[in-house]
């Protein structure tokens, strides 16, 4: 009976060792490192096989876009603030609708700017990777919510 338990223990040990080895073998270390550091550019570099000069060009595009993004962010914040204020003050429906239209217009400008930025980034990649990149992100930008606010998922 002792030999049976020894055999069973050895089999379990072999199974765990094989599972660990396969886990390590299939692990995508650059991806995990980028996730640990919340480094989206490092992930883009690994995921879309960017050469250093491509990554640098995309980094410059991101830096330039960040300024426009901040402007859009401020404009959308102001427009949303106006809606919130109109709701608090019980303004007429027409005024509220106009305020909401301004939010929608600024969000549309923002979405168009994002899509343009995504296409500029994709143009720096190989055609295959660029198409895959656009296929990943354009629908998400169009869908807007991106499966919830990032902070919610980050805490999971």
């Amino acid at each position: 009976m002792k030999n049976f338990w020894v055999t069973l223990g050895a089999l379990v040990a072999v199974g765990l060792a094989v599972a660990l080895a396969c886990y390590r073998w299939h692990c995508d270390e650059p991806l995990h490192a980028a996730a640990r550091q919340r480094d989206a550019l490092a992930w883009l570099t690994a995921e879309y096989h960017l050469r250093p000069e491509q990554a640098a060009a995309i980094g410059r595009l991101h830096a330039a876009y960040a300024l426009r993004c901040a402007e859009h962010c401020m404009a959308i914040g102001e427009a949303r603030g106006a809606v919130a204020q109109a709701e608090r003050e019980g303004r007429p429906a027409s005024e509220l609708a106009a305020a909401r239209d301004r939010v929608a217009a600024r969000e549309r400008v923002c979405r168009e700017a994002i899509e343009l930025h995504l296409r500029e980034v994709a143009s720096q990649m190989s055609p295959e990777d660029g198409a895959r990149y656009l296929g990943e992100f354009l629908p998400r930008v169009a869908a807007y919510r991106h499966e919830g606010a990032p902070t919610v998922r980050l805490n999971q």
Partner: peptide
């Protein structure tokens, strides 16, 4: 999500 949160002002 991190990437989109960096580029999406909305």
């Amino acid at each position: 999500q991190v990437y989109l949160s960096e580029i999406d002002s909305r």
